[in-house]
Design a protein around this nucleic acid. Structure first.
Lengths: 191, 191
DNA sequence: TTTACTGTACCGGCTGGACGGTCTAGACTA
DNA sequence: TAGTCTAGACCGTCCAGCCGGTACAGTAAA
């Protein structure tokens, strides 16, 4: 039995392994051999599903896009509002989307135009949603930047497994008080 | 004339070229050959000054540390206060320090523990300065994150040559209104 | 119901090129 | 002529992509 439909198919296992390696060991370590090994597939098998490393990245971007659409929808109808939703979900929580975002972010500093463009698009959508919620462009921008800062810190430095209720120097942040700050910003008088 | 003391010596030209390549083309493109060529130096010449690529990175980190000390001093005695100083200077302005920070940031996602540690230290110092200025940990954290977001966006996406007064989707940000938001945050009532 | 053929899924050795680092020959200065 | 620095050929390693092969499932003619 070469194929076992009852477990994740090779293609998605490969994508998953690629993400894991990007997150844990960085882009340099995410070689085709390493990805294949981590996915429990041979190199040839990997290349059967993804013609090249570029195609592998494209696969990741595609997955990112799909998950982003879901996120946009959740954000738009969150009872707390888009701004708080953005900051709240920017703290790495270990969801599938989080992992895919962080993995893709690791790729974004390379010459990878594809990944960069995908992020631009996502950012624009998020910004529009927050702006529509908040109204003030400057505050919307500030909220976005707070979320970005959280995500980037998570991507560059270790990913805190659990978010403590005390603010460490880099990683962990007290989300509750941060959300309170965002709340005050949102209700502050316009310029 | 192998050495011309009247112009930047080879060592600093190499460091400069390394930064430029990191910023413009990413870490992958910053090979020893490329750096040497960009610095107008042979590969052997480069390796005379920096024994290895690791030593080259260490040189960058050292430069970063020195420039950071200057920045801390400026920050501590800025009339606008530390928080506004941080956000204001987080917008890429093309200064030597900016370029060094962004270059080092490009290196930080690798397995480069040295660079990572240097950033942790810098972050901690900045945070302490802002906290001393602002008082509220949550707001200080929010200010830091806004600055981080600005820097990371600059590092990952293109560096805007000039900061426009209109907020584009990703890169350019209206600093003035952002500073106003920070100001309101700083004067907001504590939780 | 056996045999022959086709397409899908996967394997792993190989190669060519790129890169980091070494080595030696030499040029300029003091 | 000793010291300082440059130059670039060269070597070993690593990696992406290629390619010849294997295993098996489905189909269909005989």
């Amino acid at each position: 039995m070469t194929t076992q439909p009852s477990q994740p198919p090779a293609r998605s296992r490969v994508l998953q392994a690629y993400e894991d390696l990007l997150i844990n060991d960085g882009p340099r370590a995410a070689t085709l051999d390493a990805v294949a090994a981590a996915a429990g597939v041979s190199k040839g098998g990997l290349l059967y599903h993804f013609k090249s490393k570029e195609a592998l990245t494209a696969g990741l971007v595609e997955k990112l896009g799909e998950l982003a659409e879901v996120d946009f929808a959740l954000m738009a109808k969150d009872p707390d509002g888009c701004a708080k939703y953005y900051v709240r979900t920017s703290v790495f929580g270990g969801t599938t989307f989080d992992r895919t975002v962080v993995a893709a972010m690791r790729l974004a500093q390379g010459d990878d135009t594809t990944v960069r463009a995908a992020f631009s698009k996502m950012h624009e959508r998020w910004y529009q949603l927050i702006l529509g919620d908040i109204g003030d462009p400057a505050i919307a921008r500030a909220v976005m930047l707070i979320g970005d800062g959280l995500y980037y810190n998570a991507a560059l430095f270790g990913l805190p497994a659990h978010v403590g209720n005390d603010a460490g120097p880099d990683g962990s942040v007290d989300v509750q008080s941060l959300l309170a700050v965002v709340e005050r910003m949102g209700s502050a008088p316009r310029t």
